[in-house]
Design a protein around this nucleic acid. Sequence first.
DNA 1: GTTGAGCGTT
Length: 405
Amino acid sequence: MDSDQGKLFVGGISWETDEDKLKEHFSNYGEVSQAIVMRDKLTGRPRGFGFVIFSDPSLLDRVLQDKHNIDTREVDVKKAMSREEQQVSGRSGNLNPSRSSGGDAYNKTKKIFVGGLPPTLTDEEFRQYFEVYGPVTDVAIMYDQATNRPRGFGFISFDSEDAVDRVLHKTFHDLSGKQVEVKRALPKDANPGGAARSMGGGGSGGYQGYGGNESSYDGRMDSNRFMQHQNVGNGLPSYGSSGYGAGYGNGSNGTGYGGFGGYTGSAGGYGAGAAAAYGATSIPGAGYGSSTGVAQRNSWDNPAPSGYGSSAAHSGYGVPGAAPPAQSPSGFSNQGYGYGGYSGNDSGYGNQASYGAVGGRPSGGASNNPGSGGYMGGGYGDGSWRSDPSQGYGGGYNDGQGRQG
DNA sequence: GTTGAGCGTT
């Protein structure tokens, strides 16, 4: 919220209005440090709103009292809500206190993303600026591979989490006279190329409706890109840096409802999501899901809170008693029993692992539907990059029978 | 036309 002081939402602006116009207009009140017009990513067409940030937040009061005309349009000016606040809309002022009490102990990322870098910035300057906050172990300014032009962002790795905390205490930093924005870097490791495929492109078109990694089993996570370790209020266990996986089954007679389950913890590293898929079977009621994360080891120096830092989680056998006790992370069970949710990472950069297999056929293989055993892609949705990087959402989708009948 | 873009290497 701190960082949003001095930030205005400007709605209803003309499509003619660009950043410069915005800035020009609001500069009448004081120094505008940033003006931005939101555009459609694909078409580039303005979406009709933007944001303005004043260097001096105290100017807002005056600005808010006036009516504003830009490009012959009367625009709507409001105090910008942070993305966190938006969903809470209503409550008078007092939103989640949550964080800042004890200080984000769960976030272990030592790397920050820095956006808005001046193109002229050098590695040295970049480093020097941030070294003030603590020992810097790595510096990376990103360049376009083809044009070799600065992409306007970079990364700083710190030696300690404390340094990161200090940096993040303020979202905006002055660097070479411009303002840059820092965020926790998304753990790149959480996005292993190759495991994220399927979902969507597949061509089989199996799942309907369950699309996108931000949709979720009950919709509650949707649009909440800032889920922290606060209570989510959905009755599901919420561990600090866990990822949730949701598996949806589609059994041959429609009974399969996967449910939810599987979380992964990480010991000293980035915990990324594990997705568990529950096999829906043709046996009514057989497929079920429950969240069965098992936390076993927490003995390192990792101050694992509440089962955090577990090594593995198994959960959700589709067919009680019939499922092979497969510990193997092969992810496929040949006879069509679903199991899902194995994940473990013990150290360092914990890659999430998500294995789900579902057959969706009655046990015993007495199936007249040979060869169409369902395949479940290990679902890992990369939490959007905007999310708090400690989160990983997994979405598991399976189309139990492929086509039935 | 009214609440946000940008995320990599070793």
